[in-house]
Design a binder for these strands. Structure first.
Lengths: 195, 195, 195, 195
DNA sequence: CATGAATGAGTGTTCATTCAT
DNA sequence: GATGAATGAACACTCATTCAT
């Protein structure tokens, strides 16, 4: 029973881990309390959150906030080295970010049907301006018209996402190692950018 | 009370639709019975399925069987027309298949945490030999070594899948219209295949 | 699926065995039908019995009828040999009869609370006139006043019954082998009868 | 809503009474809750017991504990007065104890088929070392070899038990009043002990 | 701030019984 | 006489939430 962390945070930690592992409905408030070091079933959770759903929202918000912080860092490696190096770093970074948000993605995928709006909003923030930013960057790099850059960004980012989805969302076995994937992905982009 | 279809099939239909809309846990047996024209709460479902979980399995199996039938048809348009035409048809077909299996994918994504094995097995059947088949075909078309063909297939198929995932799994708004997506995807593949 | 015996009898056989093993409530009509070679859950049982309870009554009645037949035979070994021989035979016979009616006794004990009248009636028939008959016989043998003979019969018969009850009704381990039990029981009676 | 007694005890009381009256299966959790002053069907029982079966075990344990307490008292009247007085007291005490445990015996008899181990264990504790103790005492009193003492103890105790079984377990009418039964039982034992 | 106890509304599942075929 | 399908009523058990202490 780690009491160092404030109870509220311990509850969010416990809840998000359990939501990821067993789903929202599959996780009882009592189990969350127990995992957070409170007496299970005593309702101590309700001193920190208005409802179980409120707790879910708080957990998602915390994930999203952490993500925004990460995003700010990304800008740093724009323009580092040559085109191949930069795209490789971008790909690796994106995969790392997806790994970081694995738990959140699992929760969102599981709750998409029961809480459409909540999930849509969160995912829109997750994907956020990624595609537009990336498209703008590609337009710069390859001297492309905006529409073309946008289309390429969509196809390329989708490909990156799908490198993790089967494993994270469907428990499927990966079909390609990361390094080969990244190399092929970079090859593909470069051939599209350099005519 | 539609009695034309056999009750067992009506139950599966109702169940899969409800599972897709509200999730497995979010769908009560009583609701399924009602939607299938049975008295809700009377347990009539249990004359056809041993448990709610058994019903889920039967529903997934039926989807997978339908999918296998579709797969057999696909082979028909291999080698039709030039490379661009063939890849375009392939992409369009893949998107159509994903649309067809939308309900199934939503259910699988939602249940991945609570029924890992069930979902893994189903997804392995869904993805099936797609990637290997496609890789072999690409190796043929572009005269590529197997490893390279496999890598390209992974990136390209992933990209296709991800054209639907945000919308189907996360309720996200589409970022690109289908036709542009397909064209860009074909461009990408062709530049990789024709050195 | 033995079809030689009439269905009705097969149902009674199956039911009484299952009632004895799992209790009346613990035995579903479907299980009885299955054990009797009918389709479980199809209600074929109701062509032969008005209700599950009716079947129980029929089963008990059949046991009681069989018992009445046995009783008639008992009279045969009255007056055979000396006192010790006769009492020994009586004790052995009583134990054998209890063994024969083990299933019935178990059912009656289990249902005594839920069907008081049914059980009381059956047990009164089971114990029937045993005690009075035995008392009359003892009065003869020992030249005793009726009240005294009746008291001795009650104590002695009770002792015989209790040689089986712990094992048959409570799954308890027997504390004495039959032969020693019978000898001691006969000793006891003889000392009471021969002053 | 009698709140004086702790809820847990009220639940046990209510449950054991209902189990005795209608059997374990015949008593619904809702009925127990209602009888204990809780809202029926609300599952308040599960804050005190893990399952209905757990409650049954707790009830049996409480009965057995009470019985152990009684046993300790019994030792006090060993060696009081002459042989006849002592045996008379023993018989009366045994009958009183059986009356005290009537509810428990009824429950055990009804559940013997469905919970064999539970019942066997409880009955072994109930009968406990009674027979061995009694046999040792008889060996003392009558100067008998152990085997003989044991056999007599089995026959005599069985006779005592069976003075209550027909009434308590089978709703049968008593065939002898207590006082006559005890006198006859003592007569029987004394003739066996004093050669 | 945490707890023990309680509750209302549901959950999946079982089952005796009926009935058209 | 037997069956497949259906149903009404009940069942043990779960759970998010509330509240006095």
């Amino acid at each position: 029973m780690t009491t160092s962390t404030p109870t509220r945070d311990r509850i969010i930690d416990a809840a998000m881990e359990l939501f990821g592992a067993h789903g929202f409905r599959g996780t009882s408030v009592a189990k969350i309390e127990a995992a957070a070091g409170l007496t299970p079933g005593a309702g101590g959770l309700y001193h920190h959150f208005r409802s179980k759903e409120d707790l879910l929202r708080a957990g998602i918000d915390r994930h999203l906030a952490r993500l925004r912080a990460l995003r700010d860092i990304r800008a740093t490696f724009t323009g580092v080295g040559d085109l191949r190096t930069e795209l490789t770093l971008t790909a690796r970074y994106a995969l790392a970010e997806l790994d970081e948000e694995r738990e959140l993605l699992q929760i969102l995928a599981a709750e998409a049907r029961s809480r459409p709006d909540l999930v849509r909003d969160a995912v829109n923030q997750l994907l956020g301006t990624s595609q537009q930013d990336f498209a703008a960057h590609l337009a710069d790099l390859g001297n492309l018209p905006p529409d073309r850059a946008n289309a390429i960004a969509a196809v390329a980012l989708g490909s990156l996402y799908s490198a993790r989805m089967p494993r994270d969302l469907f428990n499927a076995d990966p079909t390609l190692d990361d390094e080969t994937f990244v190399q092929t992905w970079v090859d593909m982009l470069i051939t599209l950018l350099t005519p």
